[in-house]
Design a binder for these strands. Structure first.
Lengths: 275, 275
DNA sequence: CAGTGGTCTAGACCACGAC
DNA sequence: TCGTGGTCTAGACCACTGT
């Protein structure tokens, strides 16, 4: 077998060789042609979307159905190409957007990997210095409550529906820097508790992914200047009514509706905030 | 000539035909081969950068040297490909990044255009509503001054160097919403005055582009919560010491060093701010 | 050295928009 | 109609990484 392979290798181009290897290795049942014909592919497809968009869609489905775990490698571009019945270049273009969104990671010579998920709030920086400082998360509370005006509107829920509220403290260099309040629909995340959140280092997206199989991406944040209430002042070590930066955003699945509404409130007397 | 072209068209593929037309149309002196050989291009190039990156570089140079005006169309992808001695796909990939940055605009069936420049601060929105509101700019002041600590550091200047300060008011739906202070090195923008700024609808980037041939892009902004001083309170119609959102950023040429340091201060009691 | 991502080409065809 | 961007393929080769 090895000898045979080598002999073929000498006579074939690398690309041809790789396609051939894949054809021989993976069971034919997995090879699902996406295009009806090979010569004029895009025009005759049902979804009327470019092939690369369909590739993207398939990969997203795979991720959402838990086909691959975080950190795991996808099949190689050539294998995916064969599986979907398209060329490597098309697969590549399809993956490009997911790589751009940070869902996938490419490492030359190694493969394409499902990115680790993290909450990915902005960075605290010293004014004028671009270097991000190291931050840590601490769980303050995880409780049931009812949907307030703002959270309900953002998540498309009726007022008064049951929500879970998760409150966390962000430390920068050990010092309190920000409070994050996150709201999710209680029925969707049944069984969420403090233990599970702490297991994931207080990283909510890791929880959504590990415990609920949900890969979440954020919308672009909204900014507002606010003032510290009593509790925030106590937690962050600032005076009541001193100005706080508020950053709010909605997060949802790659294809599905919004599931999480979060507000970060941070002091910006020492550090500045950057997305 | 027309007849001859048509006869050729029947016998040739579209792509071949287009390349042939271009070869015949443009003077050969403009055709500058980027690659040393046609079969193994990337490996033997001086800059050791991918061809598409070099294409991007060339286009950026063309833009900065004023080869095309804002709104004007670039040569077609095929013509650029021939001019640079690469294939259309490579030109396309080279342009992709500039399109992504908003420097170029592609319109299918029409061509690729140099995008209009504008100051492109974020949008004011009603909370929960994604629709951007219409804004207008008003010039408050344009004066000489010396570089303060922050502006000097951002622009890489010595303290005390001459700066120009441009102060503008942003209105949203007619109501005062924000004050923008911009600082640039005076020697670089000699002859800048209120008249020229007003001619460009108070849009500084339009001025840099039209009057000084400088295409400017911004770094990602820094955020901070501040309070209204006496002047800001008066201009924005809020109380002194009421919280204001501060957004600061550096802007520079596509290839060159930072030239502009700007701070926007806005009230966020009615509207929220989004990048 | 084998396998993966990364770049590049030539050629084909489609979709759009102005004339 | 015709020129433009947009998509796709097959094939070639390079660059990197772990074994």
């Amino acid at each position: 077998m090895l000898h045979c392979d080598l002999v073929s290798y000498i006579r074939l181009d690398w690309t041809v060789w790789r396609r051939w290897r894949i054809k021989r290795t993976i069971p034919p049942s997995q090879i699902v042609a996406m295009s009806a014909s090979s010569s004029r592919p895009a025009a005759e497809l049902p979804g009327r979307q470019p092939l690369y968009a369909q590739v993207r869609e398939r990969i997203v489905q795979g991720i959402e159905q838990g086909e691959w775990d975080a950190g795991e490698a996808l099949p190689s571009e050539f294998e995916l190409a064969d599986r979907f019945g398209v060329s490597q270049g098309t697969v590549r273009k399809g993956l490009d957007s997911l790589v751009g969104e940070g869902v996938l990671l490419r490492r030359q010579g190694l493969g394409t990997f499902i990115a680790q998920v993290d909450d990915d709030w902005g960075k605290a920086e010293l004014p004028g210095v671009e270097r991000a400082l190291d931050t840590s998360l601490e769980l303050l509370a995880c409780a049931r409550g009812n949907a307030g005006e703002e959270a309900a509107a953002a998540l498309g829920l009726r007022r008064g529906m049951a929500l879970l509220t998760v409150k966390r403290l962000v430390r920068v260099g050990g010092e309190p820097f920000a409070v994050i309040e996150s709201y999710v629909a209680a029925d969707r995340f049944d069984g969420l508790d403090a233990r599970r959140i702490k297991q994931a280092n207080c990283n909510l997206r890791t929880v959504w992914w590990r415990e609920f199989g949900l890969r979440v991406v954020s919308s672009s944040p909204q900014f507002r200047a606010g003032v510290a209430g009593r509790e925030e002042a106590r937690l962050l070590g600032v005076d009541v009514d001193s100005p706080l930066l508020e950053v709010a955003r909605i997060a949802g699945g790659l294809t599905s509706a919004p599931v999480e509404w979060s507000v970060l409130r941070c002091r910006t007397d020492r550090y500045v905030y950057r997305v």
